[in-house]
Write a protein that binds this DNA or RNA. Structure first.
Lengths: 224, 224
DNA sequence: TATTTATGATAGTAATACTATTATTTAAAA
DNA sequence: TTTTAAATAATAGTATTACTATCATAAATA
C-alpha cells in the first residue's frame, strides 16, 4: 500500500496550487532546499527558477512573492506536525505521557517522512528553527492574520494548550506555555548550535538536553 | 547636573563611530524611528538619508549595510538594559526580589531615557520585540558571532543566569532559562498584541499579565 | 478538432544595495 | 593664520532584486 498524505493549504497563500502540478511540487521541493541552504534573505525566485529549470515568471504564477511562499512551507510544516502529534499521541490516556511525547516531537530533529514525496521534513525542520519566526515578524502581520495565514500555528498551540489543561485544569497560562514550548524548542536548538553560551547544552549539542530542559520547565510549571 | 550616558559599542559594527558626530547621532535616531514605523524589511539607507537630509553615501560612510546598523542598535539596547538592571537591582540583597525586578524590567514597555538624547528607548523596545531575533537569525550568524556582535546579549543572559543561580545554586539550566525569559518577554508581548490566541492575555493587552506568567514560569522552575 | 490552460522564452521597469568620483565645507595641525 | 587633512554633500553609475507584461508553444480537455 502506498499512501500519500496531502495537506490542504490556505488558498490565499498561493496563486496556483503547487500540489496540483509537477512544476508546483518542484517549487516547494527546491524552495526548501535553497532556503535551508542559503537562508531566506538570500533566496530569490530567480535562483529558485534556475535550480528548477524554469523561469522566474513560472514561479510567479504560483506565488505572489517569496514571503507567501515562506508562509506556505512553514504552515505546511505546522499542519504536518499537527498530524504527527495527533497520530503519535493517539490512544495515549495519560496526559502527562502525552505532553512528554509532544515535547519530544517538537524538539527532535525530524527525519524525512516518506509519505510526502516533494517535501523533506528534515530540511523543513531546520528552516523552522532559523526562519520560522520571520513568517509573523513583519509589518503586515495583522493583514496576514486576517487572511488566516497563522491558523496552523494557532491550531497546534491550542492542541498543546489542551493537553496542558488535561494535566492541570487549573493552570492559568496554557496558551502562553504552549507557545513558549513551541518557540523554545526551536530557539534553544538554534542557540545550542550557534550561540551555545545562551544555553546549558554547550558540551553535548544533543537535542535530548533541550527536551530535558523543556520537560523540567513545563512539568514544574503545571504541577498541581 | 546633566549626565550623558555613553555606551561604548563594538567598533566592528560601524565604519565611523556614530556617537562622535551629529550626522552619526541622526543616523541612529532616525534609524530607530524608521525601523520601528515601517519594519526592518522596508527600511533602506536611501529613505533614512532622505529623512535625515543627507545622502545615501553619507550613511554608508557610517555603516557597511543595514544589517550591521540593526545589530548596532539592538546591541546598544542590550547594553543599556544591562546598565538599567545593574543600576536598579543594586543593593537588593534577596536574589528572588532581584530576579522579580529583572523580569519586570525585561517585560515592561520602556519609557524614553532622558540620559540618552539621540535614542528613544521606548521605540527601541518596540524594535526589539518585532525585529530583535533578526539580528542573529541569519546565515552569517557564525561570522557575526566570531566578531562578538552578540556579546551584549550574552552578557545580559549571564547576568540573569547568575541571579537564577543565586536563587537556587542547584538549578540545572540557568542560561537556557535566562534566554527563555529574555526571548519570551518579547515574543509573548508580540503575540499578545498581534496573535493574541497564542497567549492567555487577550482581554487585557497589559504587560503585567506577561510579567505574572514569566514569574510563575521562572519561580516554579527554580523552586528548591 | 477546437479550445482552453499551463508553461517557456524574452523583455522591461522600478527599487534596492551598494561603489566611485569630485567638489565643498569644516576642523585640526603646522 | 595658513596649510592640510578629514568629513560631508552632490552626483553618477552598476548589479541584483522584485516584480509585470507579452507572445509563442506544448499539453490537456471538451
Amino acid at each position: 500500500m502506498k499512501l500519500e498524505v496531502q495537506i490542504k493549504m490556505n488558498p490565499s497563500l498561493y496563486l496556483r496550487d503547487p500540489e496540483q502540478s509537477e512544476l508546483g511540487k518542484n517549487i516547494i521541493n527546491y524552495s526548501i532546499q535553497l532556503i535551508q541552504k542559503n537562508g531566506f534573505e538570500a533566496f530569490t525566485f530567480k535562483k529558485l527558477a534556475e535550480a528548477i529549470g524554469t523561469t522566474e515568471a513560472g514561479v510567479y504564477r504560483y506565488f505572489e512573492n517569496k514571503h507567501k511562499l515562506l508562509v506556505y512551507i512553514i504552515s505546511w510544516y505546522w499542519d504536518w506536525l499537527q498530524f504527527q502529534i495527533n497520530y503519535r499521541t493517539n490512544n495515549l490516556k495519560d496526559p502527562i505521557v502525552k505532553l512528554k511525547k509532544v515535547i519530544k516531537i517538537l524538539a527532535t530533529n525530524v527525519e524525512d517522512d516518506v509519505m510526502t514525496t516533494h517535501v523533506d521534513e528534515s530540511l523543513l525542520h531546520q528552516i523552522l528553527i532559523s526562519e520560522g519566526s520571520k513568517a509573523f515578524l513583519t509589518n503586515h502581520v495583522e493583514k496576514d492574520n486576517k487572511q488566516h495565514f497563522f491558523k496552523p500555528y494557532k491550531d497546534l498551540c491550542n492542541t498543546v494548550g489542551d493537553i496542558i489543561l488535561e494535566c492541570n485544569p487549573k493552570y492559568k497560562y496554557p496558551h502562553s506555555l504552549a507557545s513558549t514550548i513551541i518557540e523554545m524548542a526551536h530557539i534553544q536548538n538554534f542557540f545550542m548550535n550557534n550561540l551555545p553560551s545562551l544555553t546549558d547544552f554547550n558540551k553535548t549539542k544533543d537535542e535530548v538536553e533541550i527536551i530535558k530542559f523543556l520537560e523540567d520547565l513545563v512539568f514544574k510549571s503545571i504541577e498541581k
